[in-house]
Design a protein around this nucleic acid. Structure first.
Length: 692
DNA sequence: ATAGGGTTAG
């Protein structure tokens, strides 16, 4: 029989130190607090070294509380261990990690001596907690007090200089780097490349990158990211190819940056599998986003489900995609999942789902999301308020839009733009102009292409040619003439204000019009009664190799409708479905039915309606009914009227149309019957109100 | 040090 001797561990300070170090590297799951308590229970006394490692371990672990930090500080003061600079630095880092900026600042102010590491820690902590200006001021004080910055100092400063648009500050960091020789440091160089690319100085970034001799994976990634953020996909791919040829190791960030440059995701997915990155949550999340962005929601959801970890970003991209499509039921299910998983919903996640509240049937979801925004405190974020403004303008609730806007703490241009376009879209163009006037008086902001495009849409609505011309002048003075949205709005404005010649001259001045611009010209011609020109414009567009979309066909079909071009209309309608894969909307059907009906092709029109894969609305039936009245087609007319009555008995126009039809046939009894029906239902035909 | 989800436009 063998007796096993119990193993007794020799537990000295270095044993506890190595345990705590394992916590920092995430090698063991036990909490640093537990280890520290064990240490105190043994007869050992922690020294300054123990405290420093313990504090670092606490900073990395997620489950420590403010109360415990204060206990630690008391312990340090009592034992006198806080006289060591690096122990205090560790404590400072802990405070900053927990967001206790004021405590950290107090600690810093009380320090009798400081080294570069402490300065760096506070600069970094300020910028991480959103106090970028204070970080910058602290850097100045540091220089004034004669401390030399280290590479870490500069590397801490450059990211927020890039993100917050501190262009001149970032340039002076470059100056400091050049003077001190820190420019040679590869981390500083990478940070500089990133800074310049964020400040739209891609040229400077390229020069730095080209001159760099010791390019690391991070340097290559940074350059790929720089091109991707500027929308230069080809250049991003070229950098990646070079990187690959030079056998530079790729990292998850390489893949993420390529995905955000909208590089085709299938080959990248293969690469991810090959390189064994399938367990990297950031890479998988980016792939989920790429799949949902291109509408492959099934793949996105499957991939998301396969991930080992949940992520708010991946879920948000799926939610946003469903919301965008208008599938609010599914979007809400996924959004609730986020909450069930106890994930912290942030501004981006909330805006993603808000974006989907477009129809009046979504008003309840929208309002409860607004309630959630208030409760969670997210309502203070400009991003969220902008999202709410857009949502309420889709509900035509201009009063709430203006109320929300007034509550904003800061009003960047994008918020003004949201309100202005919101008012226009709600049919309140004159309010939009009032808001714009206020912006010019108070904001110190200048309108951009988006402001102008929204205001031009307002001019179209009000038929206000003079204002439109003024805006046209502004676009010429400010070189907006190449902005697609502005050009399109200009053409639309001139056409709707009856100035077809100007609309055409704007169109002809554009070097490479996009589909939307062609669309506005086609509809413009059709609106001005130039149906033949509308059709030739459509043909010209196709000759140029541009792909028509569903808006194009609205213009084309309405031209055919007004011109009575039945054959052309049929050809275009077929081309739209067969050649371009566009499913007709209710508006397309209404135009097509009207066209057939007016050509007396009642059977064909009825067949088209019966074959529709969506439920015809009163506009579709109404188009046929109008044709019946023109051609005194009583039989079809009565059938259509019954359909319309079942669909919407409140439609006053229906009764008027029907009584007119009976009147043309001198069927006076029926005229009286319809008029009585109208009175009984309380719709007396006076529902329509003219604006002019 | 590099990174993924987002608000305004015809």
């Amino acid at each position: 029989m063998r007796i096993t001797k119990p193993i007794t561990l020799y537990r000295d300070l270095s044993y506890f130190h190595s345990l705590l170090k394992s916590c920092i590297h995430g090698e063991i799951s036990s909490s640093p607090i537990t280890i520290f308590r064990d240490l105190l229970r043994s007869s050992l006394t922690p020294n300054h070294f123990t405290m420093s490692i313990f504090l670092q371990a606490t900073t990395t672990s997620l489950n420590s509380f403010k109360l415990q930090v204060e206990q630690v500080q008391t312990h340090l003061t009592k034992s006198g261990l806080d006289r060591f600079v690096y122990v205090k630095t560790s404590l400072l880092n802990l405070y900053l990690k927990k967001g206790c900026v004021t405590s950290a600042q107090m600690l810093f102010d009380e320090m009798p001596e400081r080294d570069t590491v402490v300065w760096n820690a506070l600069i970094c902590g300020y910028s991480r907690n959103g106090y970028e200006c204070d970080a910058w001021k602290l850097f100045i004080v540091m220089l004034q007090q004669g401390f030399s910055p280290s590479a870490t100092t500069l590397v801490n400063l450059l990211p927020f200089c890039g993100q917050c648009g501190f262009v001149s500050q970032g340039r002076s960091v470059h100056g400091v780097a050049a003077k001190s020789g820190l420019e040679l440091d590869s981390q500083v160089k990478n940070a500089l490349i990133s800074f310049y690319s964020k400040c739209a100085e891609l040229g400077s970034a390229e020069v730095l990158f080209r001159e760099m001799k010791d390019k690391s994976t991070v340097s290559w990634n940074t350059m790929i990211g720089a091109y991707s953020q500027s929308g230069l996909q080809e250049e991003a791919i070229t950098v990646f190819k070079n990187m690959f040829e030079k056998n530079v190791e790729i990292s998850p960030v390489t893949i993420i940056n390529l995905l955000s440059a909208h590089v085709s995701h299938e080959p990248l997915h293969c690469l991810v599998v090959k390189c064994g990155m399938v367990n990297d949550i950031s890479v998988v999340t980016s792939l989920v986003c790429a799949y949902s962005r291109c509408g492959c929601l099934v793949s996105a959801e499957r991939l998301y489900a396969s991930a080992k970890q949940d992520s708010i970003v991946g879920l948000t991209s799926i939610v946003s995609c469903y919301a965008e499509k208008g599938d609010m039921d599914i979007a809400v299910v996924y959004f609730s999942k986020t909450r069930q998983l106890c994930m912290k919903i942030d501004a981006v996640a909330l805006v993603g789902i808000l974006h989907g509240c477009k129809k009046s049937s979504h008003i309840d979801i929208g309002m409860s999301l607004h309630g959630y925004a208030i409760k969670s405190g997210l309502c203070t974020k400009t991003l969220v308020v902008n999202g709410l403004i857009t949502m309420y303008s889709k509900f035509d609730d201009v009063e709430t839009v203006l109320f929300l806007f007034e509550q904003l703490q800061e009003t960047p241009l994008i918020s003004w733009n949201s309100v202005i376009s919101g008012c226009v879209q709600s049919g309140r163009a004159s309010t939009a102009f009032e808001v714009f006037h206020q912006m010019m008086l108070t904001g110190g902001l200048l309108p951009d292409a988006i402001t102008i495009a929204s205001l031009l849409a307002g001019c179209s609505q009000l038929c206000c040619l003079n204002l439109g011309k003024e805006l046209h002048g502004y676009t010429l003075r400010n070189n907006f003439e190449n902005e697609n949205f502005v050009c399109t709005a200009l053409i639309d404005m001139y056409a709707k204000c009856g100035n077809e010649v100007q609309a055409e001259s704007v169109f002809k001045s554009i070097k490479a019009p996009c589909t939307a611009t062609w669309n506005s010209m086609i509809s413009g011609y059709s609106l001005s009664g130039l149906q033949h020109r509308a059709l030739s414009c459509y043909l010209e567009m196709r000759e140029k190799g541009l792909k028509p979309d569903e808006i194009t066909f609205l213009g084309v079909l309405s031209a055919c409708n007004h011109g009575g071009f039945v054959d052309e209309g049929k050809i275009c309608f077929r081309a739209m479905i067969k050649e371009f894969g566009i499913s007709p909307t209710l508006q397309h059907y209404a135009l097509m039915v009207g066209l057939l009906g007016r050509a007396c092709l009642f059977t064909e029109a009825l067949y088209l309606i019966w074959k529709m894969d969506i439920k015809p609305d009163s506009a579709v039936w109404g188009a046929l009914l109008s044709a019946c009245i023109i051609h005194r087609e009583l039989e079809v007319g009565e059938y259509v009227a019954r359909k319309m009555f079942m669909l919407d008995y409140k439609n006053g126009g229906l009764y008027v149309l029907m009584s007119n039809l009976y009147a043309t046939e001198a069927m006076w009894d029926d005229v009286v019957r319809v008029r009585n029906m109208m009175k009984d239902n309380g719709y007396d035909g006076y529902l329509g109100v003219s604006q002019i």
